[in-house]
Design a protein around this nucleic acid. Sequence first.
DNA 1: AGGGATACTCGGCCGC
DNA 2: TGCGGCCGAGTATCCC
Length: 276
Amino acid sequence: MPELPEVETVKRTLNELVIGKTVEHVEVRWPRIIKRPGDWNRFCELLAGETIHKVDRRGKFLLFDFDSKVMVSHLRMEGRYRLDPEDAPVDQYTHVIFHFTDGTALRYRDVRKFGTMHLFEKGEEWGLPPLIKLGPEPLSPSFSIEGLLADCRKTKRAIKVLLLDQSAVVGLGNIYVDEALFRARIHPLTPACALSRQDAARLHQAIIDTLSEAVRLGGSSIRTFVNSQGHMGFFQQELRVYGRPGLPCVNCGTPIKKIKVGGRGTHFCPTCQSRG
DNA sequence: AGGGATACTCGGCCGC
DNA sequence: TGCGGCCGAGTATCCC
């Protein structure tokens, strides 16, 4: 499940693969992936003839920067991009194909069909869903202890639920939320408004440390993640609680517990992350 | 009004 | 071997 480190890794590899390529035509095999414009045929028409200048990332979204358009793409659970020669076989899980003028094609493959694509006129993407309400980037100066603390004080929701909803900070999903809360020694069910300034400061640092280390290692290859060049990440070896229920805590030896928080499987150490 | 919970999108996979 | 139910990101929708 791609979270910020995996999406950042995909962004970097895509920038090695597709810069300067011009779309000859777009082939949509599963129209429900295309969320904007509502008519997917229009999506194809608008991209024909456009050249990719850069691929950016905002939270877990990829932004493909074309001449006059921006395509915003979310990989959700299992979405992947690959650059293939036109004559390579296309499998049943490939749902969108960007055919380029040079005989290559960028293929979007997504077993669960959960991913989304939105196409905007350049500049209008920031004022509309899905980008409009996103919180600060965790690895930028816009992510501050004071801002995080202020957002926590607004709600009684569990801190894990707040961190997953992309409003206080972007890029965290189920894996990195559990890892960051473990590093900050905060119980995932703690009401956000109950966090002290010190808690918020530790959490802020834990989020930055966890995500930056994961980016450095090319993300986590849980289940099926590989980057757009087919390479695995290595952060899965660094996971301290996620996927380790019943195994001893790396700090204290207490068995890691698994519970449900906001409907998501949640891993934590009941000793290190005890509720104050 | 706006926070909060729920439904919805999917198909691999698990357990019975 | 068959099959119902689970999982999950983020948006839409409903409720209070």
